[in-house]
């Protein structure tokens, strides 16, 4: 099968005027011709096949948005080749634009002062969507994301969650083959995040729309994307299934148990005690197959357990663990 998106050694460097500190430095900055080069993406290669859902994960400033911008054709790579749907995106920006959908979590594409539905009809005109197909798509997506109650409301009156749902529906109206989402769940509450995730997973499954989404929320990846591409400091550091990453990292979930009265030291077989504050005890769940129920049944009901909190490792932690393991492995060789 040929790849829908092919990245071969893609790099992007930005040139910035060198800045000098201080008052004299500021004057020097005005006339300087010196540049500093900042690498946003360095030598990244991957293939994405039709129908895949890929999570592009990394901390802030890792080069996620830059990669999305290159794939959508609004940034030119500094080196390497990039092919999307058989085209070089920045050379055939218009043709590319007709077959992709893009959602920016931080930038609205809706018309601020007009009802949501007006933005949609405008979108229909821009992309020449036949009336029947437009009506059909609008109905199906609106039902799935429950848009109907606020279709006639001006965008500026919507909540962030409602707006994001509308943005996503709009990006799909012209039946794009690929949907790019840059931080689609940023700033949303739990309910809205969940709605968006379930919708995207369904669109990917039922319609076969290839989804590429950037995020720094692991939960997004878990629900939507079987495959994960992880970047940090402009470099690709992992490409594969999330489960594999978890397995590789030993899924370090953290568990906090809170007791009404101090039960004393409480070593467990299923979890490792990392710190003991008396009433609060912190454990590390190192094995993926150990469930919370198993841990709790080991603690038992007579110890006065008051509350339980389970923390999934966040992205910074995953990357930290990943580096630690990799460095350790390199040292061992």
């Amino acid at each position: 099968m040929t790849a829908l998106i092919e990245a071969r050694g893609v790099s992007k460097r930005f040139r910035q005027h060198k800045r000098f500190p201080g008052l004299l430095g500021a004057l020097k900055t005005l006339v300087t011709t010196e540049y500093t080069e900042v690498a946003a993406v360095s030598d990244v290669s991957f293939d994405i096949a039709a129908g895949e859902a890929v999570g592009y994960l990394g901390p802030n400033g890792a080069g996620k948005s830059t990669m999305i911008k290159m794939m959508t054709g609004i940034l030119v790579p500094s080196a390497g080749t990039l092919s999307v749907l058989g085209r070089t995106p920045h050379q055939e920006r218009m043709a590319n634009a007709r077959q992709i959908g893009v959602v920016f979590g931080q930038r609205s594409q809706l018309w601020w002062d007009l009802p949501v539905v007006d933005s949609f009809t405008l979108h229909q005109r821009i992309y020449d969507i036949p009336a029947a197909r437009y009506a059909d798509n609008l109905k199906r997506f609106s039902d799935l994301l429950d848009l109907t109650p606020f279709l006639d409301r001006a965008v500026r009156q919507l909540s962030l969650g409602q707006r994001m749902r509308a943005e996503i529906v709009m990006s799909l109206l012209h039946d794009p083959k690929i949907l790019f989402l840059d931080e689609p769940t940023i700033g949303l509450d739990v309910v809205a995040k969940d709605a968006v995730r379930r919708f995207l997973a369904e669109i990917n499954r039922e319609r076969g729309v290839t989804i590429i989404l950037t995020t720094h929320d692991l939960q997004d990846i878990e629900t939507i994307c079987p495959r994960l591409i992880m970047v940090d400091h402009s470099q690709l550091i992992f490409d594969g299934e999330l489960g594999r990453l978890r397995a590789a990292l030993g899924s370090a979930r953290r568990l906090t148990l809170e007791f009404a009265t101090d039960p004393g030291p409480l070593p467990l077989g299923t979890a490792t005690l990392t710190s003991d504050e008396g009433l609060l005890k912190h454990y590390l769940l190192e094995r993926e197959d150990v469930s919370l129920v198993q841990v709790l049944s080991e603690v038992g009901s007579e110890r006065g357990l008051k509350d339980v909190a389970l923390h999934e490792p966040d992205i910074e932690e995953v990357i930290r663990t990943f580096y630690q393991r990799r460095n350790a492995a390199a040292a061992a060789q």
Binding site: K69, T72, G73, I74, R93, M94, A95, A97, R98, V102, F104, R107, Q109, I126, Y127
Partner: peptide
Amino acid sequence: GDVAIWLLKPV
């Protein structure tokens, strides 16, 4: 940089 949104559309 909002102009990026318009560069993303076939217009």
